[in-house]
Amino acid sequence: MLVVENLRVVYANGAEALKSISLKAERGEIIAIIGRSGAGKSTLLRCINGLQQPTEGEIILDGENITRMNGAQLRRARRHIGFIWQEYNLVERLSAMSNVLTGRLGYASPVSSFFGYFNAQHRAVALQNLERVGLLHRATNRADKLSGGEKQRVAIARAISQEPKILLADEPVASLDPELSVQVMTDLARVAREVGVLTLINIHHVELAQQFADRIIGIAQGKVVFDGAPADLTEGVMDRIYRFNSPVAAQPLAAH
C-alpha cells in the first residue's frame, strides 16, 4: 500500500533531516512514529503529503509515485491523503459541519461548492463522520467556539471525509491535556479501524503510542532504528531512539 524507499531530505540550508528511510505499510495498519524533536518525523509526513520534495528516494502510495508528480497530479493524490495537524487548523469562522464538508471539496464540483452547495451525498458522508466522532450536537457551532478536544475531533472527521487511502497525523494530541489526549487518541484509533485506513501518527507520548498503535517505528538522526510491535519496545530500544548521545544515559553504564 505505502512503500517508502531510501528517502533522503536535505534542506536548502544544508541540514540533513532524513538520511535514509525505508518502510512498508499495509492497509488498515495504525503506525506510531516516535523519536526526538528534530529526528525527522514531521519531514517524513510532509514528504508523504508532497509538501516537501525529497532529495533522494521514492514514496509509492497505492502504486502511484508521490515524488514524481506535477502540481495537478499532486492535488489529485492529496485528495486521498488525510492530514491531522497539531494545532487542528480548522477554519475558525465556519461551522463544525462546514469544516467537515471541506473534506469533500476534492470531490465536489468547483462551481457549486463556490456557492456553498454540497449535494445530499456529500452532506451524508460529512454528517456520518461528524457523528462518528460524537459531535452531532456541535454541528452548527462555529469552530472557534469548540474546545480543543472537540476541534481535533472535527479535524479527524474532516480528514476521514476525504475517504483517504492514508491518514497522516502530526502530533495530534500535543496541544491537549493528558486526559483529553487519551480520549482523542481513542477516537482517532477507533475511527481509523472502522474505516480501515492506513494511519501514520507522529507522537511524543510513548505510552499513548504503545496503547493505540499496532506497530511502532522509531526514528533517530534521520534513520529508522526500530520497527516492530509495541511489546518489543524495550528499554534498550528506547535508548537507541531517545538517548543516543546523552551523557546522562551513559553514566550508569560507566559506573558498572
Binding site: 459541519m97 452547495y117 454540497f118 449535494n119 445530499a120 452532506r123 451524508a124 460529512a126 454528517l127 452531532l136 450536537h137 454541528a139 452548527t140
Partner: peptide, 13 residues
C-alpha cells in the same frame, strides 16, 4: 430534535 438536526444538515439548500 436529533432527527430534525440531521435533516437540516442534510439539506443541500
Amino acid at each position: 430534535e436529533v432527527e430534525t438536526l440531521r435533516a437540516t444538515l442534510l439539506r443541500p439548500i
